[in-house]
Design a protein around this nucleic acid. Structure first.
Lengths: 347, 347
DNA sequence: TAGGTGTATGGTAGCGCTAACATGTGAGGG
DNA sequence: CCCTCACATGTTAGCGCTACCATACACCTA
């Protein structure tokens, strides 16, 4: 490779890059054969394949997927919008998606809506221009324009992290309502009677609201009186958990347990108890949501709700891949992967 | 919009989608004028612009960026490879990049190498096929093939999170060596004489190794004897911090301080101290790296090194955007954004 | 009046690839 | 010996958009 700077005089609009035509010329076959050698190797004789591969290596050819996408109307891209890539919360889901897609040669185009439905809609618009083969959205509530646009684009869509009666197309998730209910029921069974609840606003109105509905329903069923609830802005920071506990105690001084809509908040609250020298759960029980890595390590270890985050991502990707392969679930399919109350020492 | 399902019989290879030609026909101008109305509105009269916009709204036209990219040789995509999107560590950088790029109409294509250079090289190959306008890599050490490929592709590249004498193109980061040095020096100045060090392997051989070199250099300079170091696999989990402290104590029972290459490990170690009832920093001082949100909340609060993660991302994106605009920094530019030792109660 | 300058718009020809439809070849069957 | 049929490869014509160059016309200057 002594002369790797041949740089043909780029006449016209040519980009000066190595193209499939160059590979074809060097290997003495036509361009389409090169294309086939790359995309459908079984349709090309082994000898030809070898020649083509040799030329590719010599020239350092990198296929132009943009041109390929245009010609084949197949971008091999899946776009996904999550509320945040910052928190611990959606990371497993994103990784699950990305891994499953990469295995099949698809790439993930990721967007962060900052928990804003308006921003989500803007991202959907921007993504659709890239002609993705599929789309993944977090949550089941969206701007009205999103439904319209997606229907017009005829793209398979999976909504994740919740369940819905009326999916855009397919849904993979769990019932946030039942999760809120079950954790509250767990606390009730453990003997706590005055259960506080602190929800992060940023968790998206709807999913958080659903968990709160579950909490409220459990209160009624176990006859635990009116709700003792609070909303917390910017719930992704540990410091907010400390503030939330303080606020909760100020408003409902009698609480004997506090259920937080995120482990981050719950751990922050645990630190506040430690600061005050309050034994947990004897003075107050603390429960979280998410089962992040830290939950098992705190002292006392945190009682929380485990979400199949990675599996949600994998299954969402899998449903799309099945559709790409020509089959797949029918529109309207709802896959409920459930959740698990993990009882540790804190509640 | 009563008949939004016209669905022209898709003769030939037509995709059945609304194209620019449809918009042109409806608004009574040529396709190129529609293109200009979208890309260079100032080159089109206001009346024409309005007509075109009306047609776009009526038809629900979404421009095909794939076709646009091919024609203009401008994908408006920047690809980035980070070791992990899972940890807290690179999230700020990614957000900084994504925000800065989005403002200018560029999209971020994100890849996760799992701290593997081989995987990084594979991602670079896959990304180059999408003809990104720029590329961002984490770290300054890569597979040899990466340099070659990138040179051939003539794409602007920014390496981040470290500094280098021999960048591929541009670098934005800080000196991991000096960071390791300064934290160790801080501990020495506070009077600790037997300082242990636990490095996460997953932090990428090189960046972690650099910090360790800094640690060792400080030990020599302050005459603190031989290094008391340990390597930890899978350093992104809190539990590993506990294990690391246990291992460190087993091997070097005399240590009076422990410096961890990540706040995650340090917090895990803090929990272990709490479990043992050891007062920190009196029995042992604990220091971390990263200044994650939790560092300010633990009891005692964690002494750590603050990294300008978000700014690194923003500046990296900015350098690329400047290049796209025709100017920008010269190849070989190194931007050192520094770091800050944040002294809290734990050390 | 001729020529120059600026603005708005259009026609044409690709960008690099692949779908769809040839074409050519040799094996096997009647 | 011709006819199928399978297989390997080639030819052509786009995919939907934008770069490039041309054109048309208004307005100015000498």
């Amino acid at each position: 490779m002594t002369d790797d700077s041949i740089d043909r005089p780029s006449r016209g609009r040519a980009t000066g890059r190595v193209t499939m035509a160059d590979v074809a010329a060097l290997s003495g076959v036509s361009a389409i054969t090169v294309s086939r050698a790359l995309r459908h190797p079984d349709k090309v004789s082994p000898e030809t394949r070898a020649k083509v591969q040799a030329a590719i290596d010599t020239l350092g050819y990198v296929p132009d997927l943009v041109a390929g996408s245009l010609a084949s109307n197949q971008s091999h891209i899946v776009a996904a919008v999550v509320p945040t890539i910052g928190g611990t919360i959606f990371v497993d889901t994103v990784k699950g998606m990305a891994d499953a897609l990469r295995e099949q040669g698809y790439q993930l185009l990721l967007g962060d809506s900052g928990y804003s439905l308006v921003e989500e809609a803007a991202l959907v618009d921007a993504f659709l221009g890239r002609r993705p083969n599929g789309l993944i959205l977090t949550g089941v509530h969206h701007e009205p324009s999103v439904r319209t646009r997606l229907a017009a684009a005829k793209v398979p869509v999976v909504e994740v992290w919740d369940v819905s009666d009326r999916p855009i197309d397919m849904v993979v998730g769990f019932s946030n309502f039942r999760a809120g209910y079950e954790m509250t029921a767990h606390l009730a069974r453990r003997g706590y009677r005055k259960i506080g609840f602190a929800a992060g606003l940023t968790f998206g109105d709807q999913r958080s609201t659903e968990r709160r509905r579950g909490y409220r329903t459990a209160l009624e069923e176990f006859d635990l009186g009116p709700e003792r609830a609070l909303e917390v802005p910017e719930a992704a920071e540990f410091g907010r958990g400390r503030e939330a506990l303080v606020a909760l105690l100020a408003r409902y001084p009698d609480i004997d347990a506090a259920f937080f809509s995120s482990d981050v908040l719950a751990v922050g609250a645990l630190f506040e108890c430690q600061r005050r020298g309050w034994p947990v759960p004897d003075r107050i029980a603390i429960a979280g949501f998410g089962d992040f890595g830290i939950a098992a390590e705190t002292i006392p270890a945190l009682t929380t709700v485990r979400i199949p985050g990675r599996e949600i991502g994998q299954r969402a990707a899998g449903m799309l891949l099945d559709r790409f392969a020509g089959g797949g679930a029918e529109p309207g399919t709802v896959l409920d992967l459930g959740f698990e109350v993990v009882a540790r020492a804190s509640a």
